[in-house]
Design a protein around this nucleic acid. Structure first.
Length: 494
RNA sequence: GUCCCCUUCGUCUAGUGGCCCAGGACACUGGGUUUUCAUCCCAGCAACAGGGGUUCGACUCCCCUAGGGGACGCCA
């Protein structure tokens, strides 16, 4: 049987490095085995999924040259490749499970479930479904369904014993069924949850090897159970370690830029980023650290994947990216730099404001230094202000970050509005409020218009620079953070 | 809180019972090359979490403790 692997991102946000990491190993393994790599869009959360996010994810993976053999854009023999377009498929499988007793309908209200959960938590138990609707008679279920009562479908889980399965990286793992919740498989809106659609699709699409993130280990019993109920053969499982922040926690945008596009915009080469990702939890037999994707495919050995979560170290990424840059011929360097710097999308935005402030072309570069390049190194003194204390400056930087974080639309108009409201609500004149922001973002007290700058910089870079500025000012202690949380909550930001 | 996973230099890692008083890389420090800087070269710093076993012999196998992480949603 030919190897088939997949990556199944959920289109609910900006493209994440973790997706690229998982995709890389899936694709390389399939390619090495002469198999196929499939991209499936897990848009089972109708409320949070968006077409824009899906398009962004596809673009980001393509930028990294992580293209696929079958997917929503190119089709394939086992499509469609979006959960939202395969609903009848899950419906029939759910019906089958209900018929064989592997699943049941549940009419409990979210309120009741909340109460149950709270009570269990209070008693120190693992919160999970209490089996309330398990005892409903067939007649009653039929009556309530016919009456159009909203309900979900839940997985029936054994009450005792252990679920034993094998992770190819860690070995045998055993989890007591007691720990496993009677997971919802079909939501009341008729959409499947991940657990149903992923398991059904993986089987139907002939997936042979599942390489996914470690965070899925604890839900494996549910998947094993579904496969048992259907009598299907389970795939080989590989749980790759989670990429980590410096403090070892799961990599998150709060502590690290996690967006693929952030790295693209900073001028990392896709092949370098891919190479670096390949060294996370894996190493070449000869310990070589710079290697091409082709060599990765040739030498990939899933047995060499380590279970330990690697810290994503930007400094080492920088070194590796530098190696790749130096290996470029002069022509290549010029071309690739030009295409990076000339990225129309990004720079059209600043042309207008630049033009107004330019008398000769030689004045252009100095003005955009902090946008095209890294921000000038700044020191604490740079933030000293005639009427703001250091503590207030920190507060402003923090509040600005919070305000930007909540924006639904990243455009200078909204950005300005959000900052103005925040300044007003926290009692600072706009003039004072923006002063520290100019320093933090541009490294200078005079720069191109702030809101436009922020728009062009993007959320991740803006967040990174604001945070770095706060660090320069001594950071925020836990105690101070709590106080800021409180003040922030009190603001009336209509 | 419950369950699961993990534990070699600050970081990425090599190591599958003797080759290891632990090797490479990034970072850092010092030196050399270079008009400066970067590159490059050389050197240095620095780790097997702790405690019990098993064994002639443990970084490697087992157990316990500690620490870290993850999961516990009609999110994925």
């Amino acid at each position: 049987m030919s190897v088939r692997t997949r990556v199944a991102p959920s289109p609910t946000g900006t493209p994440h490095l973790g997706t690229a990491y998982i995709a890389l190993f899936n694709k390389a393994f399939a390619e090495q085995q002469g198999g196929d790599f499939i991209l499936r869009i897990e848009d089972s959360d109708a409320a949070r999924s968006s077409k824009q996010s899906e398009a962004d994810i596809l673009d980001a993976l393509k930028w990294l040259n992580l293209d696929w053999d079958e997917g929503p854009d190119i089709g394939g023999s086992l499509g469609p490749y979006r959960v939202s377009e395969r609903l009848s498929n899950y419906e029939s499988h759910a019906e089958e499970l209900i018929g064989t007793g592997g699943a049941f309908r549940c009419f409990c209200t979210p309120e009741r479930l909340d109460d149950v959960r709270r009570e269990q938590q209070r008693r120190g138990e693992t919160p999970k479904y209490d089996g309330h609707c398990l005892s409903l008679s067939d007649d009653e279920v039929r009556r309530r369904v016919d009456a159009g009562e909203p309900h979900v479908v839940r997985l029936r889980v054994p009450e005792s014993g252990d679920c034993v399965f094998t992770d190819q990286i860690r070995g045998e793992i055993s989890i007591p069924w007691q720990q496993v919740d009677m997971q919802v498989l079909v939501k009341s809106d008729g959409f499947p949850t991940y657990h149903l659609c992923a398991t059904v699709d993986d089987h139907v699409m002939g997936i042979t090897h599942i390489l996914r993130g470690e965070e899925w280990i604890s839900s494996c019993p549910k998947h094993v159970l579904i496969y048992d109920y259907f009598g299907w053969q389970f795939q080989e499982l590989f749980h790759l370690p989670l990429l980590r922040n410096k403090d070892q926690s799961k990599m998150s945008k709060r502590k690290n830029p996690t967006g693929i596009n952030f790295y693209r915009d900073r001028g990392y080469l896709p092949e370098a980023l891919l190479n670096y990702l390949a060294t996370m939890g894996w190493s070449m037999p000869d310990e070589r650290e710079q290697f091409s994707y082709v060599d990765f495919v040739k030498d990939l050995d899933l047995g060499r994947i380590t279970p330990r979560g690697p810290v994503f170290d930007v400094e080492k990424l920088d070194w590796l990216n530098g190696c790749y840059i130096r290996d470029l011929s002069d022509d290549e360097f010029q071309n690739r730099f030009a295409s990076w710097a000339g990225d129309e999308q990004r720079f059209r935005k600043i042309v207008t404001m630049l033009k107004a402030r330019t008398e000769r072309f030689d004045q252009v570069l100095p003005q955009v230094d902090y946008i095209v390049g890294d921000r000038q190194p700044i020191e604490k003194d740079a933030f000293s202000h005639k009427s703001l204390s250091e503590e207030e400056v920190v507060k402003i930087l923090d509040f600005a970050a919070r305000a930007l974080e909540e924006l639904s639309s990243w455009a200078s108009g909204e950005i300005g509005e959000a900052l103005r409201t925040t300044a007003e609500e926290s009692g600072y004149p706009m003039r004072d409020f923006v002063a520290p922001l100019f320093i933090a973002l541009s490294g200078r007290s005079v720069a191109l218009p702030l809101f436009d700058s922020i728009e062009v910089l993007g959320l991740e870079l803006t967040r990174t620079r604001l945070r770095s500025a706060i660090e320069i000012l001594g950071g925020i202690s836990n105690k101070k953070l709590k106080k800021l949380d409180k003040e922030w909550a009190k603001l009336d930001r209509a």
